[in-house]
Write a protein that binds this DNA or RNA. Sequence first.
DNA 1: TCAAAAGTGTTGGTGCTACACCCATGG
DNA 2: CCATGGGTGTAGCACCAACACTTTTGA
Lengths: 231, 231
Amino acid sequence: MTSPAFGHEVLAAVLGIRDGRLRVLLWERARDPDRGRWALPGGGLRADEDVETSVRRQLAEKVDVREVAHVEQLSVFSDPDRTPGPRTIATAFLGLVPSDADPVLPADTAWHPVDALPPTAFDHAAIAASARDRLRAKLSYTNLGFALAPREFTISGLREHYVAALGHPVSATNLQRVLTRRDLLAPTGETAPSGRAGGRPAAVFRFTDRTLRVTDAFAVLRPPAQAGTAS
Amino acid sequence: MTSPAFGHEVLAAVLGIRDGRLRVLLWERARDPDRGRWALPGGGLRADEDVETSVRRQLAEKVDVREVAHVEQLSVFSDPDRTPGPRTIATAFLGLVPSDADPVLPADTAWHPVDALPPTAFDHAAIAASARDRLRAKLSYTNLGFALAPREFTISGLREHYVAALGHPVSATNLQRVLTRRDLLAPTGETAPSGRAGGRPAAVFRFTDRTLRVTDAFAVLRPPAQAGTAS
DNA sequence: TCAAAAGTGTTGGTGCTACACCCATGG
DNA sequence: CCATGGGTGTAGCACCAACACTTTTGA
């Protein structure tokens, strides 16, 4: 059991919709190695914390943690040569920040389009891509939209978030019906003022639930009966 | 960047259907700590390998690797006190062995029902539970059955595998239709002899594909068109 | 009164579950 | 020819995408 020891870092791909695009939070490295390239926030794991605690601590230094609506583990990146110098293993996380949260960012930190990244440090581009893919997959069978959208929104506003995140057209009509059928949306009773060009004012909604819920589990091999689930 | 270094181990929850139950491969610890308790196979990460390479190497010592039909990463277990002694972080994997593979096992190693584990070492019970849950979820929206079932099987034989893995009844009629509709099954043309009590001989099938395929992605927010996918 | 934007009604199609029925074998 | 188990036909339901239509606003 005398196995070697390795450095361990925690990295977070924090995604959010900003200016109509799906973006990831990156900071520009001021020092070698990879000076001038853009990196994911994160850093070394401390002796007294587990990786979940660590990622939240590290994010708190970039973003007010209360603004991060969802955090989940992606996977381990462990190529021996993934970084120069002493070997470091990384546990990668996906974080999501709603678009009405506008955290004050340090000067070296900015949101970059996840589909058009600037030159990135180490293997961080692969981590960002894996975060993007995880988000896209989960949007379609969970209520994860709550972590991208603002607290309150109109259906067409929500639709734009889904379009930006998924990268393909989404029908507002059917989006509303799917989310309503599954009881994910609740009307607030308010309406949003119509724009400069007129038009009927939109009803305002919020998500009924702001924690992750799988809505399509066991689509095929569903456990029998479960009477009462449909409400 | 002078963060501390930690031991890193790789652990595999190898699941398979044995004697009609979903079981996990465990070995009995002969030494303290946790002597006499049952542990998942695995061990320290070497300096020149990544975690995926490592888990396959470690499994080769217990099971002929060619018999492991599927391996995937679960998550990191990193509680500072998860093991006594110097801190060790674990990357946990799910491995699946088809029921027609019968690897020769070392004397200290045995298959145990995953829903009725013997006393387990460290946090290994939680890892086994997370492997079981991952398997159950993926069975319902992927072709992952190929990694549990034998190479060739009858529908009712396959049904028993799903029942054992999921823990709830599954209809053979509908199982066949669902898997056929998605082109996951191919008839071999052979039939299996009927049992002592008679009955029509069953047709023999195999999975068309023996690598993981997601069959239900984007059930809700499906990308538009994709002409020709249905074939 | 017209254009714009939001929201609802409706229709046709697909996939799924349940159940009834037919098929092939051993005794 | 009967019991046993395998396999298919089909009816009804739920869900869903597309599209036409109605509603409510600003100019």
